[in-house]
Design a protein around this nucleic acid. Structure first.
Lengths: 468, 468
DNA sequence: ATATTTGTACATTAACATTTC
DNA sequence: GGAAATGTTAATGTACAAATA
């Protein structure tokens, strides 16, 4: 058999056999990582099947399995049974979304929250620190919030449709911090969590850091499909599900009442732990009729996360977290381990803002500004059919047509002074036929600046022939 | 061979063979966990050797390996090559240290920081929120601290012996949060970190949650022994080392200059990443001569963590974190993922306290109060030879004699209204012949209350015949 | 509808390292 | 100082599950 096997196996990736050191699987991952970093393997490329690569290298195929698994854990690849293993769209870049540093003319990427409303809080801050009792906010007491702070939280939660005793409530240092706590407390490395195909980029990273595997559930225009979720749950041991039922990030899909009920039914049947991220909670107060929070349909298996970054202010790190009584000890424990305590000063300012009516005025103002921002968006991008449930979204989805990678698209916008995020950043698992940009509407200082920024964006997209 | 094998194998633990389901290793861990929870297996018990248990159950011994490994990851057991696998001292309880909720007469467990000094910060808070620019603290900008805040941090760091450009500095939400960030950014599940045999309990938990294995390094009266560390590093792939070189928690050992140099040499030789936790940084300003921060001896491989909870105030979550330039991106990334940003308001209050001299006065006051508290401790427990380097410790070590478990000792003190921590909480790996209590000196409101609490503690210990 | 391709999970085999006697 | 006991790690073998043609 003096055949030249090299040509019989037209492998998309041929690791250097002579460079393989023991342990083989680690050596393989290193080579893979390098091939991706060097651009030799582009995002989306299908890697050789485990058995073929093993054959090529003369090793057992489960050793390749192990290498591929490690590369998956590092976010380099994803695999689908029956299809193959592929280089992830996000393999080359860091997906995390944060405030951009460089000089950017138009901030349409990072999702702030109409920050000029923050000035309304100055009197509140003054009031809080002037109290005789102010220095009590500075000690180690009440790490998850004082009773008084929880009572105020309880009142707000009631307004948005959640009735809960204070024992089931605690206060974390922001929404992402709450998610960190939940992943640490209620999940273990190796657990699987179901998510939308496009989901919160920082959650993807966080799950990766915790060693949790995300399972993408296909959705339609109405969001995640209950039948698909049901199927996936029957197939594999999925432990939890992460959802943003209202204006899901980045798709801006809001689940209808019927979809909520159907999903709740499936989640209940499979005993998934639901993590409901209600980052725009305050909008539910303006909705007629209000939509039920998904977790209220599943009170025994849910964690409800209510960050105040968007409704009130982003710079104070405060988030209400609702769970079952049974989960409280584990959650508190995890909170001690990552935070020791939530800053009582930050919480007290939010609390006082609620009590004095300032919070109410801020939420009203943000509602108005979000409405206006969406009108502007729909004027400039008229192809985006106005939809009732997106009228107060803080960002919008803008489909594009291109064969470029997400990185390239972002880079071209960046070169024009525009910061946007490509859908690839939010992608879990296999690529999708329909890429889009997420356009933040809440980060420019005023309506005028937003008009200018969006107009400029449109010009750039047209010039690049990206607009659909 | 109709032998009754049951008696030939006097196993300390006999899992129920008939109850074993597949996957076997998981089923085994479940049974083990139950046996420990029910008290059937006590802390310290040696489990059957992997091969014997496998024999007994008729399975392959590496399946037992796998089960034992999982139980180790969960903190239930620890194993030593050549010796065996044992039930961990901390298996039954949660080790995390946090503020106690119930009515406690004497708080000598949780380690606060002379919280009555907090009142000095009220004018500072007022000043900060009264500025025209105050609402700028409320947006998403400068997630790791503004330049101005970093310059002030830089000045403080210089005072305690660290000269660093602001590019290598960032501000996290408290010391534990900084540790979380470091473990997420610079380590992976499965990595090993060397620690003192007794170390910060929350770090133990944090490492466990991150899937990082801690390797206990034996120490003598002078702290960790460089030769032992060297040996362990030669034996296994250790990636990092976590140290509190000044008044190490809970042992109160301060490394001498020579020990620092010797350890630095070993750490350098094995290219370990050093995590230096300088939770009492301010004391170095009062030391004559000052001791070099260990990380300054290893500038290329260190992360230096300088929480301001103890030096200034515990309720504001602020910590300075110094790293190499190369590590900054990964650290910032991890910070975005768990915090989004550090509360700029909290940081600004600390910053202004430094600028106005209030911080200086607080540190002076805490120095005095710590000195007084240690005098009180040594008066009441005269057997504890006064040692120069412990004169300003925030807690002290009190050896006890007993065969009781740590939990039982704590429970008996608790029953008398005294909150203390037993050394088992801080223990990594095999048990030690010399248990002790960690007595916090900084949590009682004043000297009088401390005298009363310590006197009461002494009575209780004498009555229980625990005092050495 | 069924066979083939592809990935996954778990147990087993083998080689190794450290401790203790 | 060597043998036995003990735990660790990597690689392989086996069974299975899903996707696709």
């Amino acid at each position: 058999m003096a055949l030249d096997l090299t040509n019989l196996y037209p492998l998309t990736w041929k690791p250097d056999w002579s460079a393989l050191k023991r342990p083989i699987y680690q050596s393989l991952v290193q080579q893979l990582s390098q091939a991706i970093a060097s651009g030799e393997l582009l995002p989306g490329t299908q890697l050789p099947p485990q058995r073929e690569l093993a054959n090529f290298l003369g090793i057992n195929f489960t050793t390749v399995t192990r290498a591929y698994r490690l590369s998956q854990q590092q976010g380099l690849t994803y695999a689908v049974i029956g299809q193959g293993t592929f280089v992830a769209q996000t393999a080359q870049q860091t997906v995390t979304i944060s405030r951009h540093n460089s000089q950017i003319e138009a901030e349409l990427g990072f999702n702030a929250s109409f920050e000029s409303e923050n000035q309304r809080l100055q009197p509140v801050m003054k009031q809080v620190v002037s109290r005789q009792t102010a220095t009590r906010l500075l000690n180690y007491d009440a790490p998850t919030g004082s009773l008084h702070q929880k009572v105020v939280a309880q009142a707000y939660l009631k307004q948005i449709g959640i009735t809960v005793p204070t024992q089931q409530l605690f206060i974390a240092s922001g929404g992402l911090n709450a998610l960190t706590i939940v992943l640490l407390a209620l999940f273990r490395p190796g657990d699987k969590i179901a998510v939308d195909q496009f989901t919160f980029a920082n959650f993807i990273e966080l799950a990766r850091m915790r060693g949790i595997k995300l399972v993408a559930v296909r959705g339609d225009a109405g969001g995640m499909q209950p039948a698909v979720l049901d199927k996936l749950c029957r197939e594999q041991r999925i432990k939890g599900i992460y959802l943003m039922p209202d204006l899901s990030n980045p798709t801006t899909v809001t689940l209808t009442l019927h979809r909520r009920q159907a999903l709740a039914e499936v989640i209940k049947r499979h005993q998934l732990r639901l993590i409901e991220d209600d980052y725009l909670s305050f909008l539910n107060r303006f909705r007629q009729p209000a939509l039920p929070r998904l977790s209220t349909l599943l009170p025994k298996q849910s964690v409800y996360i209510c960050s105040l970054s968007k409704p009130i202010v982003s710079g104070l790190r405060v988030c209400y977290l609702v769970s079952t009584l049974a989960d409280q000890p584990a959650l508190r424990q995890a909170m001690f381990n990552v935070n020791v305590k939530t800053s009582a000063l930050d919480v007290e300012i939010i609390t006082t803002a609620f009590q004095t009516g300032v919070a109410e005025r801020i939420m009203q103002a943000k509602y108005q500004r979000a409405t206006r921002a969406n009108q502007i968006f729909e004027t400039i991008f008229p192809s985006q059919t106005p939809s009732h449930d997106r009228q107060q979204a803080f960002f919008r989805r803008l489909p594009i047509q291109t064969t470029l990678t997400g990185q390239e698209v972002e880079a071209r916008c960046q070169a024009a002074g525009i910061h946007v995020f490509h859908s690839d950043r939010f992608l879990v698992g296999p690529n999708t036929p329909q890429p889009f940009l997420r356009i933040s509407l809440a980060s420019m200082p005023n309506a005028q600046a937003l008009v200018k920024a969006l107009t400029h964006l449109k010009q750039v997209l047209v010039a690049q022939d990206l607009l659909l």
